[in-house]
């Protein structure tokens, strides 16, 4: 058994949660199989990050280079290709994130290694890697075998593994010098922060959230009236923002806002994991959806399996009556 490598993901001076989630899983895999858990840290002036990662991994490989200050898939790919060829780990875990999705497939093709993307579980069985991932928007789980190889590459879905506290691993920090050539065909320009909207949904106690099931923009008042009756705000899942029916600052999910209201009512939202990431910690969740197998029902406290166009107007009416009476 050789080592388990985890690519540390950091951005704007912070190590991202996915890193600790992968390190937790990596620790478990290394314990089972007898390898060493190694965090790979690419960046510039990242000593603090290295010390932090050393609490979670037996070894931290650091490549400190000004060219790596901001994520750039091409430069990361160069550095990682070099590291993999040199160390031949059993497994390299990366995040299935905006960074990992830009990086991992190209790295795999370059090295001729197999890649399993968006994994929610991993199992090393002898020399083989079995992964669990989802298809059809989270409605199906798939167990898949990865083509046998010396090194396996995986990208891991956010929040698939619990990030455990540091185990005081006392990891050894090793600086390595990797040749990286600046490229003229891809250049980082800047980060752009999301625009601040007029409503801050993260501050609301009650959120009425709408998804694809609403079908048409002209049906949105149904949702607005319910939100108004409850004294809450309207939020939504991604398709509603993509269609331009509500502004981006109303979007709940991994590419939008993370909310923790007292009450979250999900209407016509199937519950793809990207959405669930943004609302699963709400105190109470009620879901209305006509598909009884919609994943939203496995995060909701209460569910209604019915046509939202019948249920929502009734609910609004009953709430208005109760409040009026």
């Amino acid at each position: 058994m050789r080592d388990i490598f985890v690519l540390a993901e950091h951005r704007k001076g912070e190590i991202r949660d996915i890193t600790f989630e992968m390190l937790s899983k990596g620790w478990e895999l290394a314990e089972q199989a007898g390898g060493t858990l190694t965090a790979v840290l690419l960046g510039h002036n990242v000593d603090e990050h290295a010390s932090k990662l050393a609490e979670y991994a037996k070894k931290v490989l650091v490549v400190d280079n000004p060219l790596l200050e901001n994520f750039n898939a091409e430069l990361y790919q160069q550095a990682l290709a070099h590291i993999i060829k040199e160390h031949k780990p059993t497994l390299l875990m990366m995040g299935h994130t905006g960074f990992g999705m830009d990086l991992a497939p190209a790295l795999a093709v370059q090295l001729g290694l197999p890649l399993a993307t968006d994994c929610i579980d991993l199992c090393l069985d002898g020399g083989r890697l079995l992964v669990t991932r989802q298809m059809y928007g989270g409605k199906v789980n798939v167990e898949a075998a990865v083509r046998v190889a010396e090194t396996y590459l995986v990208t891991v879905r956010s929040a698939s593994f619990e990030a455990k506290e540091g185990v005081s691993a006392g990891g050894e920090i090793v600086h390595v010098d990797v040749p990286i050539q600046e490229v003229d065909y891809k250049r980082f320009v800047q980060y752009v922060e999301p625009p601040k909207g007029e409503v801050d949904i993260t501050a609301a106690d009650i959120i009425v959230s709408v998804g694809r099931g609403i079908r048409e923009e002209k049906n949105l008042p149904l949702i607005e009236e319910l939100a108004k009756a409850l004294g809450g705000v309207v939020a939504c899942s991604r398709p509603i923002v993509d269609k331009g029916w509500l502004p981006k600052d109303r979007q709940v999910g991994s590419s939008g806002k993370t909310v923790r209201p007292k009450l979250y009512i999900a209407i016509g939202i199937s519950g793809a994991f990207q959405h669930v990431l943004g609302m699963k910690d709400s105190e109470m969740i009620i879901a209305i959806n006509k598909d009884p197998k919609a994943p939203i029902f496995s995060v909701a406290d209460y569910g209604v399996v019915d046509d939202l166009f019948k249920v929502v107007p009734e609910l609004t009416k009953k709430i208005q009556e109760a409040k009026g009476g």
Binding site: K293, G303, D307, E314, L315
Partner: peptide, 29 residues
């Protein structure tokens, strides 16, 4: 191919919502 699908299954729910049953008016109440 990098992957070979071995088995598909419906994800076991981490928890299952309490399903509120009845007519829309009953459900709302």
């Amino acid at each position: 191919s990098w992957l070979t699908i071995k088995r598909m299954y419906v994800p076991p729910p981490k928890k299952q919502a309490v399903i509120i049953q009845g007519s829309p008016a009953d459900v709302a109440a």
